[in-house]
């Protein structure tokens, strides 16, 4: 009887360079990842300005409004118009008052408006906010690094 003594040789690929590369990639992405909650909204494309700098410390008591191209205002997943925004401001202020001693004088309204929205819509938002006693506004723009 013939005994098959053929050993099937498994040619093993050298995995070292691949693992090197993969670890490099992982290290790259791990270093660059940041879990900070970005307040981005898909409907908003911010205008840019060369003068702004990212704030050194986070703005206290923020109320972030996203204003889409068509003037729709997005606050925390809900949609509003300038007319219905007042109720939202009231509930946000109620939350702020309940949490701490911040009131409408300390709250900051951060307006992230699309670059092509009518400027009057932004003015309307500011007017509605003023009626609720809010007085600190921040117009959020993208930092322009080209110059």
């Amino acid at each position: 009887m013939r005994v098959k003594s053929e050993k099937r040789e498994l040619t093993e690929a050298d995995l070292t360079p691949m693992i090197d590369m993969v670890f490099q990639l992982i290290a790259f992405f791990m270093v660059l990842i940041n879990f900070t909650q970005t307040e981005a909204n898909d409907h908003v494309k911010l205008p840019s300005s060369e003068l702004v700098k990212p704030p050194e410390q986070p703005i206290e008591f923020p109320i972030v409004l996203h204003v889409g191209f068509d003037g729709v205002i997005y606050v925390g997943g809900d949609q509003y118009t300038a007319e219905t925004l007042g109720t939202r401001f009231r509930s946000e202020l109620a939350v702020l008052r309940a949490q701490g001693d911040a009131g409408e004088k300390e709250a900051n309204v951060i307006i992230r408006a699309h670059k092509d929205v009518a400027a009057g819509e932004v003015q309307e938002i500011i007017r509605v906010a003023q009626e609720e006693g809010l007085e600190n506004f921040a117009l959020r723009v993208k930092e322009d690094l080209s110059s």
Binding site: S49, P54, P55, F137, V141, E143
Partner: peptide, 10 residues
Amino acid sequence: ELEGDFSIRM
């Protein structure tokens, strides 16, 4: 993208 604010007190 880096973002910044124009502060307006009104």
